[in-house]
């Protein structure tokens, strides 16, 4: 089931009359059967978008389509969605089995069939042996699986997850990440999830959408977005350690940084630009430019080199073997790994 958002907008007015555009003319299409992540910093409108898709918030403008159906005015229970809340929202006074069965009570199916569905779903998420416990007796990860089972049991067209991993500890996060991906693969259901953790989004999404202040920044396959960020915001948001941002200019086809350092080429006309270089895109090059490192850290396989370039501090990660024992540090930027941006708009310059 494909989800299409057309010019979706949400404006919040506080009691003083001030307006905040939480979501601003968002137009994206989420392809059917894919796992898509809505990514962005806090307050960028991703949860708002999710709740509008769910139908719990009414949009101020724009339309939402599930396939060919316009569901913009439809109540949540009629849209055929499953929603997993950030704090799971399980009914505390019901057992796991009753929790999962609750959505089925409103469908016209027999009880035996409902019970079978419940067990099928419990097996899918892996809590078949916890069915008669109450939520308070389960761990966080188990509770989340119950929430997922409850969302999926009515075979919805769309599965929505609100920050599914933020309540879990680090180890559980990795495990659950894989679980979500596996479940989505097995059911083939169109899934949208919201997160502020870029590593998480990059690891499991089929596609990612980055939002900032309600505006879409880029939508692409994760690795594509990482390698070719459409603007400065996306470039800065992805990547750990973060990308190095330096001032520079394009002069006669060369990308020049301060101190007249040439780091690469560009086909664009002369202009003042902002240059982004990821730490791992530096490499040791005897023909490169020499740097005086402020600090060098050897961490096993990688070596971190901190140096200053025209008043900006730069972080570089190079292969340890290549720098080991070398007295002079000479670096260059890997080919095609230069990101050049327009200083006013932030968009990428080719």
């Amino acid at each position: 089931m494909e989800i299409r958002l057309e010019e979706l907008t949400k404006i919040f007015t506080d009691k003083n009359g001030k307006e905040t555009r939480a979501v601003d003319n968002l137009s994206i299409t989420i392809p059917s059967g894919k796992l898509v992540g809505l990514l962005g910093p806090s307050g960028c409108g991703k949860s708002t978008t999710l709740y509008m898709i769910a139908g719990l918030l009414k949009p101020s403008g724009g339309k939402i389509f599930f396939g060919d159906d316009d569901v913009t005015k439809l109540a949540p229970e009629k849209r055929g969605i499953g929603l997993v809340f950030q704090n799971y929202a399980l009914y505390p006074h019901m057992t796991v089995r009753q929790n999962i069965m609750f959505p089925l009570e409103n469908l016209n199916i027999k009880r035996e069939e409902a019970t079978k569905l419940v067990e099928e779903m419990a097996a899918l998420v892996g809590i078949l042996d916890q069915l008669d416990k109450k939520p308070s007796q389960l761990s966080g990860g188990q509770q989340q699986r119950v929430a997922i089972a409850r969302a999926l049991v009515k075979k919805p067209r769309v599965l929505l997850l609100d920050e599914p991993l933020s309540n879990l500890d680090a180890r559980l996060r990795l495990q659950t990440r894989e679980e979500i991906k596996r479940i989505q693969r097995e059911t083939g259901i169109t899934t949208v999830f919201v997160t502020h953790d870029q590593e998480e989004a990059m690891s499991i999404s089929d596609q990612m959408v980055v939002l900032d202040y309600g505006v879409e920044q880029q939508m692409a396959v994760p690795q594509e977005m990482y390698n070719h960020p459409a603007n400065l915001f996306v470039a800065k948001f992805l990547g750990n350690p973060p990308i190095n941002i330096l001032d520079g200019k394009i002069e006669q086809g060369n990308v020049v940084l301060s101190d007249n350092l040439i780091v690469g080429t560009s086909k664009s006309p002369n202009a003042t630009v902002v240059v982004g270089i990821r730490p791992e895109d530096f490499r040791f090059d005897p023909q490169g430019f020499e740097v005086t490192p402020d600090e060098i850290e050897h961490i096993g396989r990688d070596t971190l080199i901190y140096f200053t370039l025209g008043e900006k501090k730069v972080r570089a990660i190079v292969d340890s073997d290549s720098v080991y024992g070398k007295t002079k540090i000479k670096l260059s930027v890997k080919k095609d790994k230069l990101h050049v941006f327009n200083p006013e708009t932030g968009n990428v310059v080719l």
Binding site: A54, L56, A75, P76, E77, I81, G82, L83, F85, Q86, N87, A89, L90, Y91, P92, H93, M94, F102, P103, N106, L107, R150, A151, K154
Partner: peptide, 24 residues
């Protein structure tokens, strides 16, 4: 959030009162 989860599950106001709020 419990109320919203119930709405998504197709639960009306009165049903929410009797099945969820009163037991809790």
């Amino acid at each position: 959030t419990l109320y919203r989860a119930a709405r998504v599950d197709g639960c009306g106001d009165f049903k929410y009162l009797t099945r969820v709020m009163i037991p809790i």
